[in-house]
């Protein structure tokens, strides 16, 4: 396992952001799902060595990030896209990525510039590489964030909501880039987009109020909603959640009344059910 987190607890003042969390992540894309404030960013920052847990153990790439030497070795093989990644807005795209490459200790100018060009091409930024970051659209900036995370082909890639604020086409491109990045290395990402998670992740962990409510594959999560989603001409009183879909009928999620017209569940249905019953705790291995 590239990432191994055991009983990690982290509090900020009186808020418990993470409460005894376990997580394993190996090759492929592992997704963290959960509502606002669930603790996803806190866990990703711990995995990115930016934050240390108050209690619990973390092993990354076989090393212990609480030891300064190990931490440096981990950071040499780590790429991180923070949730609210900022930029030096006066830098051009090339200069900014080059700056991060320097922080990643690529000291020789020529090979460093080659690497900067490689990630710029990979993320489709070649046409704006000489533009100042302040002149870019939000989606383009998100690409700059992904580009810097890919510098040096890291073995562990930590992406906090990489697809937020992207239009559908760009989101597809990002999915492609991320799933490509997940081949032969470990990607841990968070998202609110259940479609992104379904499309990308080999494993998911669902968070709620600092605790892990589910770990397993996307199919295992979806299967939990089997028999609990039904179509009706009206909003059902028994439903935890119900919404009108394109053909005018209502999609109801919860405990169906007798004789309900069951429909196949999606990951989103299962996620809603899990959030509606937060005391439920499920772990698949």
């Amino acid at each position: 396992m590239t990432v191994r987190v055991r009983s990690a607890t982290k509090s900020f003042g009186r808020t418990t952001a993470l409460d005894s969390v376990d997580l394993d992540a190996g090759h492929g894309v592992t997704g963290l799902l959960g509502p606002n404030g669930a603790g996803k960013t806190t866990l990703l920052r711990i995995i990115a060595t930016v934050l240390a847990p108050d209690r619990g153990t973390v092993t990354l790439l076989g090393r212990d990030p609480s030891r300064p030497d190990d931490r440096t070795r981990i950071r040499e093989r780590l790429g991180y896209l923070p949730q609210d990644a900022g930029f030096h807005r006066g830098f051009t795209v090339f200069e900014f990525i080059d700056y991060v490459a320097i922080l990643k200790q690529m000291t020789d100018r020529r090979p460093r510039h080659d690497e900067v060009r490689r990630v710029i091409d990979l993320t489709g930024l070649a046409s704006v590489s000489a533009k100042r970051i302040r002149a870019l659209s939000g989606g383009m900036r998100r690409r700059v964030g992904l580009a810097q995370a890919l510098l040096g082909n890291p073995d562990l890639l930590v992406l906090d909501e990489p697809t937020v604020g992207l239009d559908p086409e760009q989101r597809l491109r990002f999915r492609e880039m991320i799933s490509h990045a997940g081949e032969g290395r470990t990607v841990v990402m968070s998202s609110h987009q259940t479609e992104d998670i379904t499309a990308l992740c080999t494993r998911i962990a669902v968070f709620h109020r600092g605790r892990v409510r589910f770990t397993g594959t996307p199919n295992e999560l979806t299967a939990q909603a089997a028999g609990r989603v039904w179509a009706d001409s009206q909003r059902s009183a028994a439903a935890l959640a119900a919404w009108r879909i394109g053909d005018g009928t209502f999609r109801n999620v919860g405990d169906p009344p007798a004789g309900a017209e069951l429909v196949p569940p999606t990951l989103e249905d299962a996620y809603l059910l899990l959030m509606g019953e937060p005391d439920l705790e499920v772990t698949h291995s």
Binding site: A48, V50, T72, Y80, K104, Q105
Partner: peptide
């Protein structure tokens, strides 16, 4: 944050 996660 990016700087903190870098080995520099």
């Amino acid at each position: 944050e990016i700087g903190l996660a870098a080995p520099y």
